[in-house]
Design a protein around this nucleic acid. Structure first.
Lengths: 231, 231
DNA sequence: AGCGTAAGGATTGTTCAACAATCCAGCAAT
DNA sequence: ATTGCTGGATTGTTGAACAATCCTTACGCT
C-alpha cells in the first residue's frame, strides 16, 4: 500500500501532460516523427507555406513549431533562408560522442546509487532489442538501442541529463538515417548491450565503464569512417 | 604568414555573426539583460502586450523572443497563463549542481589536452575576479566567477558542453538574485578559484578535481541552506 | 462564514492578410 | 567565365481580429 499523499505527488508531477498541448506542440510532434522515421532527409528544406497548408495551421504557428524542433537540434534555421533538417557533420558527430561518453559513463558510475527501477529500464531496453532482433525488425532494434543508452544516462537521476540525452540521441537518429543499413550497424552491438548490463547488475563498475567506452569508441569510428567515405 | 585560403575558413566560421539578428533575437537580448541584472525577479510574469508596447514590436515577435529564452531556461511558459521568470526550486538547484559537477570536473580532467588559450581564459577569469574584488565591485566579481566556471567547462573543448554550461550558469544567476548579498557569497570563493587554477596549471589534476568538488559541495550547501530558510 | 456558481474582463492561443526585406535562379552584357 | 540585373518566391514582421482560457468579483445558497 502506498504511503498516504504519494498519489498527490504523482498527480502534481504529471499535471503538465494533461491535454495541455498547443497546436505548435502537435505540429512539432508530427514533424519529429517524419524526421526520426527518415521521411524527411537531412539537409532538406521545409517551406513554411507548404507545411502550413498540409497541416492546416497558420504560418505563425508553424514557426512556433519550428522553434521547438530547432532547440531540439533536429532542425536548423538560416536567416532569411528557411529551416532545414539538420545535417550532422563529422565534427558534429565527434562532439556528439564526446558528450555521450561524458553522460553515459557518469550514468554507469551512478548505477549503485540509482533506484532499482532505473536499472530495470536498462534491462528492459536490452530485452526489447533482443526480441526485435529475433523478429527481424531492425527498425525497432535501433529504437531499443537508443532507449538503452537513454536508460544508461538516466541512472544519473537528473532531469537535466535526461533531457540532454533525449536530444542527443534524437540527433543520433539523423546520423543513422544519413548512412542507412540499420541491420549491419546495430547487430554487433546487441550482445554488447547485454554484456554491459550484466556487468552493471553484477556491480563491476570499472569493467562496465571500460566496456561502454570501447563500445562508444567503436561506434564512433565506424560512423566516422562511413562518413568520410560518403564524400 | 598564413596558409593561402585560411582566411576563407575564418570568414566561413564567422559568417553566422554578421548582422544576422532577427528582431526576436534583439528583444531576447534585452530581456536577458533585464533578467541577469535582476530587474526582472524570479516568478514575475511578463505580459506579451506590455512588452510589445515597450519594445515596439508585435506580439508574434515577442512570442518568438519568449521561445528563445524559454529554451535557455530563463523563462517558463504555462499554457494559457503566460510566461514567467524562472523560479529555481531546491530540487532544481540540486540538479543544477549535479550537472555542474559532471561538466566542470570533466573540464578539469581534460585540462592537459586542452589548448593553452583555453587555460589562459581560466586564468583571465581569476584575475578579473581579483581585480573586481579589489575595486569593491561585487557585481563584477559574480560575473567573473561565472566566467571562471564557464572557462573550466570549456576545457572539454566541446561546443555542446559550452552551450549547456552557458545556460546552466545563466540559470545560476537567477539563484543568486533570489537570495541577494553577493559580497558575502562570492568573497570566500575568490581564493579558491585562484588555488584551483594553480593546481590546474601545475598539472595536479586529482587535487584540482578534489578542490573543485569540495568547492561545489560547499556552494551548494550554502545556497540550499539559504533556500530552506527563505521558506 | 463557507462553498458552489455565474458573469465579466483580461490575457493568451491562433488565424489571417498584408507588406518589406531578402534570397535565388535565370538571363543579358561585357 | 564572370559580373550585373531582374522578377518571382520565400521569409521576416506587423497589426488586427476572434476564440479559448483564466482570474477575479459578485451573487446566492446552506
Amino acid at each position: 500500500m502506498p504511503a498516504q499523499g504519494s498519489w498527490l505527488e504523482t498527480i502534481a508531477a504529471a499535471r503538465d501532460d494533461i491535454g495541455r498541448h498547443s497546436t505548435a506542440d502537435r505540429v512539432a510532434h508530427l514533424l519529429r516523427e517524419q524526421i526520426t522515421d527518415g521521411r524527411l532527409v537531412p539537409g532538406q528544406r521545409i517551406p513554411e507555406e507548404d507545411l502550413g497548408r498540409a497541416a492546416k495551421v497558420s504560418r505563425n504557428t508553424i514557426r512556433e513549431a519550428f522553434r521547438l524542433l530547432i532547440n531540439e537540434r533536429l532542425l536548423v534555421h538560416e536567416f532569411n533562408r528557411g529551416v532545414f533538417v539538420r545535417r550532422v557533420t563529422a565534427d558534429g558527430l565527434a562532439d556528439l560522442y564526446r558528450v555521450r561518453r561524458i553522460l553515459e559513463c557518469e550514468g554507469v558510475r551512478c548505477a549503485p546509487s540509482a533506484p532499482s527501477e532505473a536499472l530495470a529500464r536498462v534491462e528492459a531496453a536490452v530485452i526489447d532489442g533482443e526480441r526485435a532482433a529475433a523478429g527481424d525488425v531492425w527498425e525497432q532494434v535501433g529504437t531499443a538501442d537508443i532507449r538503452f543508452h537513454q536508460a544508461l544516462a538516466a541512472l544519473v537521476g537528473s532531469p537535466r541529463v535526461d533531457e540532454m540525452t533525449r536530444h542527443l540521441l534524437a540527433e543520433m537518429r539523423l546520423v543513422f538515417h544519413e548512412m542507412g543499413s540499420p541491420r549491419e550497424f546495430h547487430e554487433p552491438y546487441l550482445a554488447r548491450n547485454r554484456r554491459l548490463y550484466d556487468l552493471l547488475e553484477r556491480g563491476d563498475l570499472d569493467a562496465a565503464e571500460a566496456e561502454l567506452r570501447s563500445y562508444l569508441d567503436d561506434a564512433e569510428a565506424q560512423l566516422t569512417k562511413a562518413y568520410r567515405e560518403q564524400e
